[in-house]
């Protein structure tokens, strides 16, 4: 398994966990308030810190387990896989933002627009990592 594939597995898992944490927090806060919870610095900061710290620690671990793979530069196959996965995940992000904007146009709920945008970003990243793994395994 290449370093990029290992990285995709770890980042996919990390961002999924972060997404679940973010959605559950927003859900609980919204239930308590009786309306869509506003975005808070603690929520966004918490999610970002979880992701960054998790990514740094996990990448140090996988790099130390296979230092030769980690030092390999991206080759033509890596570039093709990452480009295709990034391209398709862009559609996921675009669809989510588009849906969020329409939702805002109809309901004028700016807080929900914010959470839909964050959710779309998370969903597109998950899609990118899943597709990266799929393309590495089955061919791009």
């Amino acid at each position: 398994m290449s370093f990029h594939e290992k990285s995709a597995w770890i980042m996919g898992l990390l961002i999924s966990l972060t997404g679940v944490w973010y959605v559950s927090r927003v859900w609980k806060m919204s239930e308590a308030l009786g309306e869509t919870a506003p975005p808070t610095l603690g929520l966004i900061g918490g999610a970002t810190i979880m992701l960054v710290v998790g990514a740094i620690i996990s990448h140090i671990i996988i790099a130390s387990l296979s230092p030769e793979d980690a030092s390999d530069a991206e080759d033509e196959r890596d570039k093709q896989v990452l480009r295709r996965a990034g391209n398709i995940s862009g559609y996921v992000l675009g669809f989510g933002i588009f849906a969020g904007l329409w939702h805002y146009y109809i309901n004028s709920d700016g807080n929900l627009l914010f959470h839909i945008a964050v959710g779309s970003l998370i969903a597109s990243q998950i899609a990118e990592y899943v597709l990266t793994i799929l393309f590495y395994r089955r061919g791009a």
Binding site: S2, E5, D69, D75, R77, Y136, G139
Partner: peptide, 9 residues
Amino acid sequence: GVTRQTVIA
């Protein structure tokens, strides 16, 4: 000039 994984693929 590619990775070993690419040769395998």
